[in-house]
Computed example of a mutant assay.
Amino acid sequence: MSLLRRPYAYSKMEMEDPEEKAHRRAQFLIYKVMERAEDSQSRRRRRPSVLRMRICKLKVKIGKRLKTMRKTMFLSISKARISLYKKIMAQLKILNRLLRGGEAMVSLPPPLCN
């Protein structure tokens, strides 16, 4: 009996219901998750650092340059395709005229001998 009367003495606990134990554990886990969510929100509210802002601006700048470079490349490639197509078509027309024979050539009148 003297053990129970002393301060901070151990006392025997009665057996706990397993459902109640699981419920208490679930409540604890929910509490921990909510606590983490609050911590992450408070971290997000902090003012972003100058370095992060500079990096973000640099990314935007690089992205814009890449976009314009891509557009100019596509434009120049399409122009090159068009010019190549025109050259090929001109060569095919010349080849077609040569294969047809005299139809494409202008026939000259016979020379007049005096």
Results as ranks from 00 to 15, higher is better:
T72G: 03
K79F: 06
L51Q: 15
R54T: 03
L98F: 00
R52T: 03
M105V: 12
L4F: 00
R36Q: 08
D17Q: 12
R24G: 01
K67E: 05
Q27G: 06
L95C: 15
R100K: 15
K61V: 09
S42F: 09
V60L: 13
R6W: 04
Y8D: 07
Q41D: 12
L95A: 06
M13W: 03
S40R: 15
E103V: 09
R45I: 11
P18K: 01
L112V: 13
R44P: 00
A90R: 14
I30Q: 05
L75F: 14
K59M: 01
H23C: 12
R47T: 09
G101S: 01
M34W: 03
K67M: 10
E103W: 14
F28K: 04
R25M: 06
K71A: 09
E20D: 07
M73K: 14
L84M: 12
G63V: 07
K64T: 05
I82K: 03
M69F: 11
R97W: 02
M34S: 07
K67C: 13
T68E: 10
E35T: 04
R45W: 06
R24H: 01
R6Y: 02
V106I: 08
R52C: 12
R44N: 14
R81Q: 15
V106R: 13
A9N: 00
S40F: 14
R46Q: 09
S40E: 12
L84H: 08
P111K: 06
Q91S: 15
K87S: 05
Y31S: 05
Q27W: 03
V60H: 13
Y8V: 14
L58C: 13
E38M: 11
K93F: 09
D17N: 12
Y31P: 00
L29W: 12
R81W: 02
L66P: 01
P109G: 08
E14A: 06
E19K: 07
Y85R: 09
I94W: 01
L4V: 06
K12Y: 01
N96T: 13
D39M: 13
E14M: 02
Y10G: 02
S11C: 10
R47H: 06
L51N: 11
K61N: 12
G101H: 02
Y85G: 03
L112E: 10
M1G: 00
M89N: 04
L108I: 13
K12M: 11
R24K: 08
K64P: 00
E19V: 15
T72Q: 15
V50E: 12
F74S: 13
L29C: 04
P7R: 00
T72Y: 06
S78Y: 05
L92F: 04
L58E: 15
D39E: 09
P111A: 08
V33M: 09
R100W: 04
K12F: 03
K64H: 05
P18Q: 01
M105H: 10
P110S: 07
R24T: 05
A37N: 11
K57N: 14
K59L: 15
S107T: 08
R6S: 03
Y85H: 10
K79A: 02
L112H: 05
F28C: 13
K12R: 14
P110M: 05
Y8E: 03
S42D: 10
N96L: 08
R81C: 12
C113M: 15
Y8I: 02
I30K: 06
